[in-house]
């Protein structure tokens, strides 16, 4: 019989302890840790692995990134231009397949060529829209003109990306 009442008492006691904890949060509005996402956006840290970006003008076309990628996200096609330099004609990154592991960024031998942007909102309506095209395209005429044109293209892309 004593055990019967003792059981009841311990049960009641533990229930009340728990309720004490929950009411502490219940009446304290400062305990809320929610961030109101679309209004309040947290600043990602410097090392944040967001959307991949290629500074195509300094890309040497070495294909190190495409080779290291474990899920074959990067489609890279290069041609040799008249200066015997490799020119990345097609440089597509399929964000839908990217697993954001960062191996390509580490593999890139050129500073600030391939890197992660601090961007995490880039949903799209179709899978095709998720592919970012960085390639320079086929050079139409050799020399200075082509260079100017490519600079324009990347500028446009950058704007579009933003």
């Amino acid at each position: 019989m004593a055990g019967y009442f003792k059981k009841m008492f311990t049960a009641l006691n533990s229930v009340l302890t728990g309720m004490g904890i929950t009411i502490k949060y219940g009446v304290n509005p400062k305990a809320e840790v929610t961030q109101q996402y679309p209004e309040v956006k947290r600043e990602p840290p410097d090392r944040f692995r967001g959307k991949l970006f290629v500074n195509i003008n300094i890309c040497t076309g070495c294909t190190a990134c495409a080779r290291i990628c474990p899920v074959d996200v990067i489609t890279l096609k290069t041609v040799r231009d008249e200066n015997k330099k490799l020119r990345p004609v097609i440089f597509d990154i399929n964000n839908a397949r990217c697993i954001y592991c960062g191996l390509c960024v580490e593999a890139c031998p050129v500073d600030n060529c391939l890197y992660f942007e601090k961007k995490y909102e880039f949903s799209a309506y179709t899978k095709e829209d998720l592919i970012s095209h960085f390639g320079l395209g086929e050079a139409q005429s050799p020399g200075k003109k082509a260079e100017e044109k490519t600079a324009d293209v990347t500028k446009e892309q950058k704007e579009a990306a933003q």
Binding site: P45, D46, R47, R49, I99, Y100, C101, G102, E106, F116
Partner: peptide, 24 residues
């Protein structure tokens, strides 16, 4: 973890030979 390796779930931080980068 995010400030260390840039990711919140799939870290890919500990690599063959050590870790991918020093702690920030």
């Amino acid at each position: 973890f995010e400030m260390t390796c840039g990711s919140r779930l799939t870290y890919n931080y500990i690599r063959i030979g050590g870790v991918s980068q020093d702690i920030p």
